[in-house]
Design a protein around this nucleic acid. Structure first.
Lengths: 207, 207
DNA sequence: TTCGTCATGTAATGGGTTACATGATTAC
DNA sequence: GTAATCATGTAACCCATTACATGACGAA
């Protein structure tokens, strides 16, 4: 009932926004389409889909609903999940959030992956929030390094250095992105700012 | 009984190797001393310490054991944990492992942090294993990118690109480290290559 | 016909956090 | 004396994985 998995829920909703899919395919897309994204196991994915259906955000469609498919009774159906209009609405709500959660490591990646469907000002807030989050982290690392430097051996030091450099690198990346956004060259799916909520889905579902 | 948390256990053992500590202090060191290391909550740490004691790898010492401290009965004691000789032995065993687990994201960081106590050939295997793990990952990313490139919007593409670049960067880092090790300039705690397993420990344990 | 991959699910378990409860010690 | 921080612990819960069980479908 309270299976509220955050990232997974968000990612599923977002992927199904593009076109209906069944669970198995969904899982593959979680690895690939979405940046460097973790692979959830089926033990996580399927129960999650069930609760999303229960919430009214997804609708199941078994292949037997398809008039072209052989009407075999008792045959285990392949279940295609489709985003309902309530689900679409819910996804837009999630998409509009730009608060602290959205700058955490896990959330941020998924959020970014769906920037193509996100309003420009929200994108900016998420990007800037993420950056300040990383800068805080950097501050803490620097402070703790200053305190403990002489007590640490070379390997620990090297690890620390490399870690900080990674974070610094991400900050620079964010700076560039923010710059691009500010210059108005945000790249949202071909068309610049307009994102019509088309209910006619373009991809072939029945195949 | 089966509270076998892997990383945490390893990190605790390693930190206590240097000097005895109590839980609270231990937790702080997990954030700082060990590279960019995650902070475990007390709800994880304290139970873990208990099981390590039960295993015979740690020994508890309450401050009331200290003859200088006031002998107040019933007073909640500050518990200092000390690595037993069995614990030290167990840690050496863990340290000697260089199998697949050691090249996973989580494990690798801690392993590296304790390279100062690790044999050179083990260091090499861990470093090389990690590198090949990352190269596999890179291969997969490249393949999936090649398959799906045209279907992805600019943001997703950018995320993917940045992710791959991060991994590539870590590979280059590993290359340098491996080079250094191969050149014999492994930097284990001051002295270059020699690391006799001295049982006379140099850090003051009794303090 | 057998093997690999597609496809869906569940029960047990694991590893961790949160929130809570308690109390000592230090700085102001 | 009171607030912050040091210090230790527990119970309830959460999120996800593992191992298992089932079965369809296509290719060799």
């Amino acid at each position: 009932m309270s299976r509220r998995s955050g990232v997974l829920e968000f990612a599923v909703l977002g992927l199904l926004r593009e076109s209906p899919m069944h669970g198995y395919e969904l899982r593959k897309r979680l690895n690939t389409s979405l940046g460097v994204f973790r692979a959830f196991s089926y033990g996580t994915l399927y129960p999650c889909l069930k609760t999303l259906v229960a919430q009214g955000w997804l609708a199941e469609e078994t292949t037997s609903d398809d008039p072209l498919a052989a009407p075999l009774a008792g045959r285990r159906a392949k279940i295609v999940y489709r985003l309902t209009s309530a689900g679409k609405e819910h996804f837009e709500d999630l998409l509009a959030q730009s608060g602290p959660d959205a700058w955490e490591d896990e959330q941020f990646g998924v959020r970014f992956a769906f920037f193509g469907h996100t309003e420009r000002d929200v994108r900016m807030r998420v990007l800037e929030g993420r950056r300040s989050r990383l800068e805080e982290r950097l501050e803490k690392m620097r402070a703790s390094l200053a305190r403990t430097r002489e007590r640490l051996d070379d390997y620990t030091l090297e690890l620390q250095r490399h870690g900080m450099e990674s974070v610094e690198r991400e900050v620079r990346w964010l700076n560039e992105l923010i710059e691009t956004e500010r210059a108005g060259r945000g790249r949202a799916k071909g068309r610049p700012a307009d994102q019509g909520r088309d209910d006619t889905n373009p991809t072939d579902t029945t195949k």
